[in-house]
């Protein structure tokens, strides 16, 4: 489908905002193998927003939106929190759900899209904070996984409630002191990736956004596996620099400091055998297609 559904009627072109015209001219809708490499040269699917200067959630949004395999056929589901300050400025269809309800809304949406567009792949991708995913929405998160709903859940884990000023969440580290948790958290960080695996997710990954190529690989795996096999879960460290007392330029270092081999955001992936076989098969098909291309090109070069 590509850009067909956002083309501008030529008579109205001059009154459209310049950002929209740029989207039509150079955004990567419909591009095969779109990804982080397009950043800086193609129009991104995210406009100016009100996240704090230097917020790693903003970096994460850029990589996620650059890497969605099929943005024109994707619907994202958001929830209340700092991420909800961004969704109104995102050029991918999205729904804002009541705080915590995101995986219930996404379940209904995915099923409805399947009925409405039986012959077209429609991806549903939830993107919500740790409070929404692991505390207030935990019931909805888990029930969607138990029911094997075929969509991706992304948790932007900043280890606290940022949007309401620094309360502890299930994903806060034990002992961590916040403005509104002055004695420090009494309990361990919930082991959400393990819970996701045990609850039926076919693919699970935990990472930071210090490496855009890794975010791209993980996101594509998660979305493609969710299409065909079952629920997938990605947990991404997006430190809230404001609430942990970091300067605006310190977010990247904070992520690097949290992803060493023994740290809580060391990169980890869980994948079922079925999902592994699916990815291997996809790789084979890609290689065969590439080889066929070279094969058809070769005779032309033979003199």
């Amino acid at each position: 489908m590509g850009k067909n559904n956002l083309k501008i009627c030529s008579d109205l072109e001059d009154i459209m905002p310049p950002e929209y015209r740029e989207l039509v001219a150079s955004a990567t809708y419909g591009k095969e193998n779109r990804g982080w490499k397009d950043i800086g040269s193609a129009k991104e699917l995210i406009e100016e927003h009100s996240l704090c200067a230097g917020c790693p959630e903003a970096i994460a949004f850029r990589y996620v939106l650059a890497s969605l395999p099929n943005p024109e056929d994707t619907v994202m589901v958001g929830s209340t929190g700092c991420t909800s300050l961004v969704f109104p400025h995102v050029a991918v269809h999205n729904i804002h759900s009541l705080f915590g309800n995101q995986n219930a809304v996404a379940s209904g949406l995915k099923r409805a899209l399947k009925l409405r567009f039986p012959d077209r792949e429609k991806d549903v991708v939830v993107l919500a904070g740790d409070g929404a995913t692991v505390d207030i929405g935990l019931d909805m998160t888990l029930q969607a996984w138990f029911r094997q709903e075929k969509f991706t859940t992304i948790c932007f884990d900043n280890e606290l409630y940022a949007n309401t000023g620094g309360q502890e969440s299930g994903l806060t580290q034990k002992g961590f002191v916040m403005k509104m948790a002055p004695q420090g958290k009494q309990f361990n960080k919930v082991r959400m990736p393990e819970i996701a695996r045990e609850s039926g997710c076919a693919y699970v990954a935990i990472l930071t956004v210090s490496k855009p190529n890794l975010v791209e690989r993980v996101l594509k795996n998660a979305v493609l596996i969710a299409r065909t096999i079952g629920p997938t879960y990605i947990q991404i460290y997006t430190p809230c620099i404001l609430e942990i007392g970091k300067q605006s330029m310190e977010g990247l270092q904070e992520m690097r400091d949290a992803e060493g081999p023994n740290d809580r955001f060391a990169f980890r992936e869980f994948i079922t055998d079925e999902a592994k076989a699916f990815l291997a098969d996809m790789d084979e098909k890609k290689k065969a297609a590439a080889a066929a291309k070279i094969g058809t090109a070769a005779p032309a070069g033979v003199k």
């Binding site: 950043i39 800086g40 040269s41 995210i46 100016e48 903003a58 850029r62 855009p212 977010g251």
Partner: peptide, 18 residues
């Protein structure tokens, strides 16, 4: 080099002049 372009948190802010 594309480091600043990739890590700037804001979209379409640090760009590459072709």
């Amino acid at each position: 080099c594309r480091l600043c372009i990739l890590y700037c948190p804001e979209a379409d802010t640090l760009k590459f002049d072709p």
